[in-house]
Design a protein around this nucleic acid. Structure first.
Lengths: 359, 359
DNA sequence: CTGAAAGCGCTTACAG
DNA sequence: CTGAAAGCGCTTACAG
């Protein structure tokens, strides 16, 4: 169909091997020959053929490394499923995936696992970067070594990653506010904010985006308090229990609610739900949360959680692998940011797409 | 990596050509030889290699036909974009796409365009089937001719399509009801339903799913009336104008609203919005709609439309092409139904995912 | 630094 | 009905 290496070789009066050297920046070719070949390729509008490349991979198969803080964190299950799917689809083309996972957010541990991946010989890395000097330096080192990096779920400023795949946390906060504003429908509502940690950028952005939107459009909504759950269900349960105790003590009698809604920016949702149910306030106090873990499923189905905003975790696993593969294969450049959607999930639309999980 | 045709040939004591004939049901092979080869392939756990297949396509490139009622219908723009994207990604492997589009829903025209595609020599077809005897017969004919079919956007009962890619209209109706129920928050709300046509199954299912959910969970919501817009903005405008005239005549003075919300199952949303704005009721009467056309964008952004439920139209274009390609390539069977999500879109989360459109 | 050859896995004419 | 050969586009040793 298109132009092939063979044709370029004929026209340039060199061998296919030399054309290959020129096109793929391989060593051992005279600069002027390279220039000549590239000019011809250019004038012919040469684009390498994927089928040929794919089959040509047979020796020197590709390997990609993945590093993430997924241990003990249910949220990463869907991400892992996406990575596995990409690995299996591309396995036919020889791709090998190497995982390094950790519990919690240690920059030193992350740096160490990145080193391990390099030693395994991976040609590219996808990771959830920790915002720490050590990691900044490590990413600079990867850039020097010509190992392309894609960040997912969380981005890191001023690094040389070729792409970020994940949420825009400001917009996800705005989405939560937009939803809550529509629910309040002009009524004066007071909102309790439960965040994961005030030192997590993403969590803060979800608060910030929320604030901006209510400030601009929903002056009837007020934030009454902010607490940290440390992404922990027990902690969230304790906080909510205490917060709700006046209303709970009142039993059936009507007292003013301590809040009309609870907005959770991160983990701890199931604990919060438990406390709300125990206080007899399920469905009365609206709960807006993010993501979806197994422990949240039932609360979503039962409408204890009014809505949860998901961020396409499966794609956050799938896309980085796919993009790195394409990049290594024929230099296909992904966009600098591939935003995942903020999906508003309620009980009625929570179980629909078997597409991603069934295969 | 895996087992190759060459290895099977050696073990079976036949040539690669014969193995190929056996594996791909090609004519000209003795039944017992075929059986023998297949047994060996089976025992070795043979799975064909995609890279090899892809390159082997060079002669006899694939072609897939697409038929849909997209003319004059903005909704199909995103679908077309998805098809184009799949076509360009797979173009490297020689795939050619053939389009036949029509305006409106003529079964005879559809049958004729299917015939045209067959004459073009397409090996598979993706279409939006019309529920008519002629089409049922045409699909049976395609099955006899061994031309695989995928339906998208709309399914058709008891046909031999290998997959349906699209919405579950009952669930999309349920999603609309769940959302409206949360907005009403226990208040007695009256809803005007505007459907496209009472003879369109999908539109009816969106009403049915809506009814079931309010019946089960939101007895505070009542449907006050149902009108047909014929998917037409002018018609929708006229209906709404008349319906809202008492309230509009009242000007600023408070009268009881003729409805608290309008639920549109199909086209005509922009017309409805125009009438609601003219009556001075933007934001007061909640509007829940489906999909998203250019004419709706501004109303969504301005919160005149409270929320619209989208059905991943881009994927409805992309997936059928991709699935048919995979099916033709190595018999990869798609699921019988690949449901697209019911995405709740509000002004805050409407512009996020550049992923699908930018490329 | 360059070329000629062999190979990846699968298909397709062609010869028998 | 079957086999031997050639080819798809690209890569990789190997020889010079």
């Amino acid at each position: 169909m298109g132009v092939s290496i063979k044709q370029i070789a004929e026209i340039a009066g060199v061998s296919r091997g030399t054309v290959d050297r020129a096109l793929n920046d391989r060593p051992g070719i005279k600069p002027e020959v390279k220039k000549h070949v590239l000019e011809i390729a250019d004038s012919l509008g040469y684009r390498s053929n994927r089928a040929g490349k794919l089959l040509g991979l047979h020796k020197a198969p590709m390997s990609i490394g993945i590093q993430m803080p997924s241990e003990g964190n249910d949220f990463f299950e869907a991400i892992t499923a996406g990575q596995r799917q990409a690995g299996s689809e591309l396995g036919d083309f020889g791709l090998r995936l190497y995982w390094r996972t950790m519990k919690g957010f240690s920059a030193r541990r992350q740096a160490q696992q990145i080193d391990e991946l390099i030693e395994e010989g991976v040609q590219a890395i996808a990771l959830v970067p920790i915002d720490h000097q050590i990691i900044h330096e490590k990413l600079a080192e990867l850039a020097r070594k010509n190992i392309p990096v894609i960040t997912f779920n969380t981005d890191i400023a001023d690094s040389d990653r070729i792409c970020y795949v994940g949420n825009d946390y400001l917009k996800s906060g705005a989405t939560a506010a937009g939803l809550l504003g529509r629910l309040a429908d002009g009524r004066e509502w007071r909102v309790l904010v439960l965040t994961g940690s005030v030192s997590m950028l993403g969590h803060n952005q979800r608060i910030h985006g929320f604030h901006s939107t209510i400030k601009e459009h929903y002056s009837n909504i007020k934030v009454v308090d902010i607490f940290e759950t440390e992404d922990d269900d027990d902690k969230a349960y304790q906080i909510c229990r205490e917060f709700l105790s006046p209303a709970a003590a009142a039993g059936g009698r009507s007292v003013e609610l301590p809040a009309d809604a609870i907005y959770l920016t991160a983990g701890g949702t199931a604990g919060c739900c438990k406390a709300v149910i125990e206080a007899g306030l399920a469905g009365v106090i609206k709960i807006i949360s993010f993501d979806r873990t197994p422990s949240m499923e039932q609360y979503l189905a039962d409408r204890v959680i009014t809505a949860s905003i998901e961020q396409e975790p499966y794609l956050q696993g799938y896309l980085p692998v796919k993009m790195l593969f394409d990049y290594l294969l024929d230099n296909t450049r992904p966009p600098a940011c591939s935003w995942t959607r903020n999906e508003i999930v309620i009980s009625e639309n929570m179980n629909q797409s078997a597409r991603f999980t069934e295969k």
